[in-house]
Design a protein around this nucleic acid. Structure first.
Length: 469
DNA sequence: ATGTCC
């Protein structure tokens, strides 16, 4: 794929053929090595009806279903703009929640192993059913409508949690009627569960603070112990994605839409199929937040019992969602459907949708790294090149198959434990697939994101213990 | 990512 360097950490793929907009990739040349397949996907996304500005890719871009993971695309519903389930991904509302403990590493060290054992016992994980909060059909309906707001109403959390969650814990436009029976059945037994793959619950330590005043507003400080939870909407979100991809594949011809890859199935935002998907997707987004809310509560119980420590929510943000947002397009405010797939919303200081206590600092952006390296807290910046979006993690360089082939899970655990990282895996194969070597260097990804003007570094955290999905 | 194929 041909691209030209047009700025620091910024490359352009010139518009040609059926592309409606150019491609813009934020990365270093080093990060773009072996990115051929994902750049092809950036080009394919640029052909979607109603796409605005450019088809963007973040520095952690890699190949995904239809859209690249690390892709951002905004469409204008008033100009035939489409919504595509592939632009969100199978794990709708996959995201990260960070909590700060009222203790530092030294205070925690003596109880780290019993604490990790406790977390390992209470956190349901791996494929299939199991969740800390078994719910009835009626309760699930409330979760789909009100997300973590309902969980908190039912006693699973504190009111303050909602202020520190994207959208106050729930999006208003959820339409549970668009979530069919099968998706609901899968969702019933999985509220409060990690899942598998790259999902985890980590106990971390803040090792570096790059901006004291922003970190202070977020509620984190050097040396502090934190808990990072990375998970999504489990089988419910997966089922919704599959169901609506199928509906859209059938509907596309009727709208005269052709796409270069059938995995880019889509429908106009303002169509029955588009609205149905967005309503179901929003319901899954609420499910994802409730899921993380329940896992946070489980972690709070263990921290209280084993360490006498309290966990306070820093923030909860998704990196797999499509949202209706207002953005300036050629100086005019326009309501757009912004797809972020493996890309994190990063609102700048002063953004009207931020709660009062974050208004001056900007939106906390939570970046899960790998279990052997580091994770980051970033914040949004003015300008924000790609509809206020940035990276979402380290980004894979090795396939799951290759990682499992070249890594021995037991030896990996021994290595991590030798580095002082307590590991509570659920399967050796799952652990091996997530070996740090399977990922890009998260420090480089974050440096590229900052260098490209997408975000700013606030803090770096390293793992002390990992409960692996 | 996912009751890793209805």
């Amino acid at each position: 794929m041909e691209y030209v360097e047009e700025g620091p950490y910024r490359f352009r793929i010139t518009r040609r053929g059926t592309m409606r907009v150019p491609g813009v990739v934020f990365a270093s040349r080093e990060l773009l090595r072996d990115a051929e397949m994902s750049l092809r996907q950036v080009v394919d996304v640029a052909t979607l009806p109603g796409i605005v500005g450019a088809s963007y890719a973040m520095p952690d871009v890699h190949w995904g279903y239809g859209f690249p993971i690390g892709g951002v695309a905004a469409t204008d519903p008033g100009d035939g703009g489409v919504v595509s389930p592939g632009g969100v991904g199978f794990d709708i509302s996959c995201g990260v929640r960070l909590l700060a403990a009222d203790c530092d590493r030294r205070a925690l060290q003596p109880v780290l192993h019993p604490l990790m054992d406790g977390l390992g016992r209470v956190v349901p994980r791996g494929a299939g059913p199991g969740g800390v909060w078994p719910v009835t059909g009626r309760q699930l309906e409330r979760i789909l409508r009100s997300g973590s707001r309902y969980a908190v109403e039912e006693g699973h959390g504190e009111e303050r949690d909602l202020r520190r969650c994207e959208d106050g814990g729930a999006v208003a436009d959820a339409d549970p009627d668009q979530v069919d029976r099968r998706a609901r059945e899968r969702g019933l037994g999985q509220v409060g569960s990690l899942g598998s793959g790259n999902h985890f619950l980590e106990v971390q330590q803040v090792t570096q603070v790059y901006d004291e005043s922003v970190a202070d507003a977020f509620g984190i400080t050097a040396g502090q112990v934190c808990v990072m939870i990375h998970c999504g909407s489990r089988g419910l979100g997966h089922q919704i994605c599959s169901d609506h991809v199928r509906l859209m594949e059938k509907a596309m011809a009727r709208y005269g839409i052709t796409v270069p890859d059938r995995q880019l199935a889509c429908a106009p935002v303002d169509s029955p199929e588009g609205r149905a998907y967005l309503g179901a997707m929003a319901a899954a987004a609420n499910y994802g937040r409730a899921n993380r809310q329940l896992l946070a509560e489980a972690a709070r119980g263990v921290f209280r019992r084993e360490a006498g420590a309290r966990l306070t929510l820093v923030y909860d943000v998704s990196h797999n969602l499509a949202k209706t947002e207002t953005h300036q397009v050629r100086g005019e405010p326009r309501r757009l459907c912004v797809h972020r797939k493996g890309a994190t919303r990063a609102f700048p200081p002063g953004h009207p949708e931020l709660p009062d206590d974050l208004r001056a600092a900007g939106q906390p952006v939570l970046i899960p790294g790998t279990m052997g390296t580091a994770s980051y807290v970033l914040t949004g910046v003015p300008g924000g090149g790609a509809f206020h979006s940035t990276c979402h993690g380290a980004g894979r360089v090795m396939s799951r198959h290759e990682a499992a082939r070249t890594t021995d899970g037991k030896r990996l655990r021994a290595r991590l434990e030798g580095d002082g990282i307590a590991v509570r895996p659920v399967s050796w194969r799952g652990l091996a697939e997530e070996t740090p070597e399977a990922y890009k260097d998260v420090d480089e990804v974050v440096a590229a994101s900052e260098g490209a003007g997408l975000c700013r570094k606030v803090a770096r955290l390293v793992p002390l213990g990992v409960v692996k999905g």
